[in-house]
Design a protein around this nucleic acid. Structure first.
Lengths: 334, 334
DNA sequence: CTGTTAGCGCTTTCAG
DNA sequence: CTGAAAGCGCTAACAG
């Protein structure tokens, strides 16, 4: 393999000078620099990343680790996240290793770091044990939690304000004149689901709206569960006029259930989702929803990680991003 | 950083022995092996990837390079592809660097390879210049083309049989009794679109079905273009009873247009898509479509690349995968 | 079965 | 501004 010595020989300088030129150090005479650059070009020389990594003790690679796709997680989420992360770190000459893990088994997040195959991590995880976090912290691993929070440790995370998003949804429905507002949830385990449900309840309470337990249906994020939940709601004697769905997939299921039951959306029932996945704009009617800023999440998390790696980070950053109301056609004034 | 010497010291052996144990070589006595393993555990030692890469001249990383997401490319495609690729190479202790490129500018696919940051590439590209291919070949870079073909060079690729998929769609429609079958295309540039259109035409011809030029509407893969295309079709004096859409997104647009124009699907018009994206199963009615096996594509491509890297590859592999008809509810017998 | 030696290609440190 | 020497942590090749 071609190495600095070949370039050095050709340009009649030492390998140190070649190294300096490659790394853009200023202490090289213009003349010498030119000669070296010329030699590099003529030989088509490229520096060896492994050798650099070894001597600098830095791989210039970060890891994005995500749960391996299961039924409920959305490919759009992963796709948008990783594209946005990559776009940011690329500017700083970092590459991204994509490293899915099996959410079922015990996960060792630090594996690639310990081999110094990566310099830091972006972690997407539903839940991490106290011990997992502790391990990362005590090993001084540079990492940022993406779409989860943990305030019991001095670590950085970027999350979206799920609670607030739910409040926005309910308030929007209220502003349309709805008073009987139902909800379908993503289950009782996912922290996102819990926050969204809490937001829903709080908003109802603040607005003095009726809260009825049979208006809260437990789902599991899936389109099917949205379908079922809507059917239940539709059969209620005291039927709500609007429903807040904890994610778009369930809202899409609800839309399909409505069509099957001949209840007109939004005339007879308003439906609002959460996430703003791409499908949301292709439904009929197009889905009104709360947008989760995935791309922004990735960008911010990437920047924080880069700061961590550059050593100029000060405090752990705990960022909560704002959701946005996206008005389409699945909600109407009562 | 902890290194082999620390382990060696602790286990009272040479670093070579440590290296042998780590690499699972057989020529180490059971006793010594145990001692080394013990020392490794006690010290929490992990081998340094950069040092390995340098001395073995192998990074154990492959690259998946894809066009940065533009309007038409689907996040599901990328997501499914990269997850499936990663799952395969992981078995062989490889990691995946995800490397999007800007499809607008000139692309240098070999950049990471030349730095030996990766050992080989999976390339997703709409079109590559003769020169780009030539460069990869002459540099002896291990690579596999994903979802594109090139038979003018001894290189490996994995693609799906778009032509055949279109034929299957038309034949299915025919078997349902349709004779007036329209099509909406993905434009005249994309090779996929061309193949799918050719398949459509060929199937019509073989079946002796009427081919009318006003039944072929040019779209651009987007949902909007599907919407528009359907509207045009619906206004025709001699209206077709079924339409083959070159991708699911356009089919979804068509579905929405049908709802807006009060034409019942599938009673008044059958609609069939192509790709089987996830949205396809959530539409109303659920979309009948031709499934493109993305996951399988990724797996096969990854295996071919791994073979290439292991040096045991013989001939370039040119694989064409079969699409599958997925029957749902958007097509009905005439 | 185990150890010694000599690099892999680069950067850091120190000298000039 | 330029160069020599040493070493990052590992493995290949050879020797015993």
């Amino acid at each position: 393999m071609l190495s600095q010595v070949d370039v050095a020989r050709k340009a009649c300088v030492s390998i140190m000078t070649v190294s300096r030129v490659i790394n853009g150090r200023s202490n090289v005479s213009k003349d010498t620099r030119e000669r070296v650059l010329q030699a590099i070009r003529e030989l088509s020389y490229f520096p060896n990343a492994a050798a650099r990594a070894l001597s600098r003790n830095r791989a210039n690679v970060i890891e994005v680790t995500v749960p391996r796709r299961d039924y409920f997680s959305s490919s759009e989420y992963f796709s948008e996240l990783i594209f946005s992360v990559e776009a940011v770190v690329r500017q700083h000459d970092y590459n991204v290793i994509f490293n899915p893990y099996d959410p079922a088994g015990p996960v060792d997040y630090g594996a690639l770091y310990r081999q110094r195959k990566v310099d830091g991590l972006l972690i997407v995880a539903r839940s991490m044990s106290q011990q997992q976090v502790q391990s990362l912290c005590s090993e001084q691993i540079a990492f940022v939690l993406v779409n989860s929070r943990r305030d019991d440790k001095p670590l950085s995370y970027v999350d979206v304000d799920n609670h607030k998003g739910a409040v926005m949804a309910v308030e929007y429905l209220r502003s349309l004149g709805h008073t009987k507002i139902a909800a379908m949830t993503g289950g009782t385990e996912a922290i996102n689901s819990i926050h969204r449900l809490q937001g829903y309840r709080q908003a109802l309470q603040r607005k003095g709206l009726p809260m009825r337990e049979e208006w809260v249906i437990e789902g599991n994020w899936s389109e099917e569960s949205g379908y079922e939940a809507f059917k239940k709601l539709a059969h209620l004697a005291d039927r709500p006029s609007a429903v807040f769905c904890a994610n778009d997939l369930m809202a899409i299921g609800a839309l399909r259930a409505a069509a099957d039951s001949a209840v007109a959306v939004p005339q007879d029932m308003s439906i609002i989702g959460f996430d703003d996945i791409r499908l949301a704009s292709f439904t009929n009617p197009r889905l009104t929803t709360i947008r989760q800023p995935i791309g922004q999440t990735g960008q911010v998390a990437a920047r924080i990680l880069l700061d961590l790696l550059s050593g100029q980070a000060t405090e752990p950053q705990k960022i909560i991003l704002e959701p946005t109301l996206i008005v389409r056609s699945s909600c109407a004034a009562r």
